[in-house]
Design a protein around this nucleic acid. Structure first.
Length: 300
RNA sequence: CGCGGGGUGGAGCAGUCAGGCAGCUCGGCUGGCUCAUAACCAGCAGGUCGCCGGUUCGAAUCCGGCCCCCGCAA
């Protein structure tokens, strides 16, 4: 990247997924021409079994010595939001990078940087726009997914695409394994897209009108197993919901997670489970101590 | 002080309320048996009952304190 002065980047992100991107941007060895002027992340969550839970991006930013902003509101229609917007404006960022921030970025913010906002989205857009693209791809049985870098507009993951890269999903993949691969791939592709975009070598291309799918935010209830569904679907659900919320059933009054299973001649064979209040264990071990509570319950 | 479950041979559990020989299903080892699917039969080894203190003739169990793991909620 040939720049006369450092490119001033403001970073938006929250979970572990976003950390590698931030680290690359903040690393003077890998990106000497980039200066991260602020890191915006969600407010700390309260009461995580007694302890506080600062977002992973906040911890990374502090480790890297970067200023952190954690606004509750970011729209101009309220005092906190407009204060925040003024603060961003005063930083005079050239561009913003957003990955899994967790809030809708309003137009007032999008318009601030000269070069706009780039978003790192972990699906092959326009497939799986929305909040939980990794889980959606696994649950649907997609054979591949990937990472898309796009220029943000006001819509939800609807902006024109700069760069896209695919990875294969194999039979052993879980949301966790895909997450880890896309997390590091996302950082690499983001830098490539950013460089190309800033230099003018890459131009944003409008998303295809065909193949659009959307997904919502994963909730606890998405993990509840419906034993009347196709065993192949349940098996995908177990991998898609791992590690959170986990695929679970609670027919015996207490929830029990099924953490590992496989298909054998079209039937679901349970390999590992995690009862409430217990650690993960082999299904065989579980049944040794719970002979009166076999899984799955009410086998049809 | 957000709510809650748990720590008992290598694994998973019961026993704790009502103090009185350390129990169950597995695994391991030895021997036997079988065409045989998570084999079957006989036997053996293996435990400071999370830690510290208290009560008691006697504590896995009752009382006080501490450590660790996990579920819910996010």
């Amino acid at each position: 990247m040939a720049m006369s002065s450092p490119l001033k980047v403001i970073f938006f992100g929250t979970p572990e997924l976003a950390v590698p991107c931030l680290e690359v941007l903040a690393d003077p060895k890998q990106t000497p021409e980039i200066s991260v002027v602020a890191v915006v992340t969600q407010p700390d969550k309260i009461g995580n079994r007694g302890r506080q839970a600062p977002p992973p991006v906040k911890l990374a930013a502090q480790r890297l010595g970067l200023p952190v902003l954690q606004p509750h509101r970011i729209k101009a229609n309220n005092p906190e939001g407009s204060t925040f917007i003024d603060e961003v404006r005063s930083l005079r960022p050239d561009i913003a990078i957003v990955i899994a921030y967790g809030k809708i970025v309003p137009l007032e913010l999008l318009n601030i940087p000269q070069l706009g906002f780039l978003n790192v989205h972990v699906s092959l857009l326009p497939r799986w726009r929305g909040a939980s693209p990794i889980q959606a791809a696994l649950l649907a049985g997609d054979s591949e997914t990937g990472v898309t870098i796009m220029k943000m507009d006001e819509g939800m993951d609807t902006g024109p695409i700069l760069l896209q890269r695919a990875i294969n999903i194999d039979q052993a993949d879980t949301a966790a394994s895909i997450h880890d691969r896309l997390s590091s791939l996302g950082a690499a592709v983001m830098i490539e897209a950013l460089t190309g975009y800033v230099s003018g070598a890459l131009l944003p291309v409008t998303q295809p009108a065909n193949g659009i799918t959307s997904c919502g935010l994963i909730k606890k209830t998405n993990g509840l197993i419906d034993w009347s569904s196709d065993p192949a679907y349940i098996e995908r659900q177990i991998r898609a919901m791992h590690p959170w919320p986990g695929a679970f059933t609670d027919i015996y009054g207490e929830p029990i997670k099924i953490t590992e299973a496989h298909l054998e001649s079209g039937r679901l064979v349970i390999d590992k489970v995690k009862p409430a209040g217990k650690g993960e264990m082999e299904y065989r071990a579980y049944s040794n101590g719970n002979r009166d509570r076999p899984l799955p319950p009410n086998k049809a």
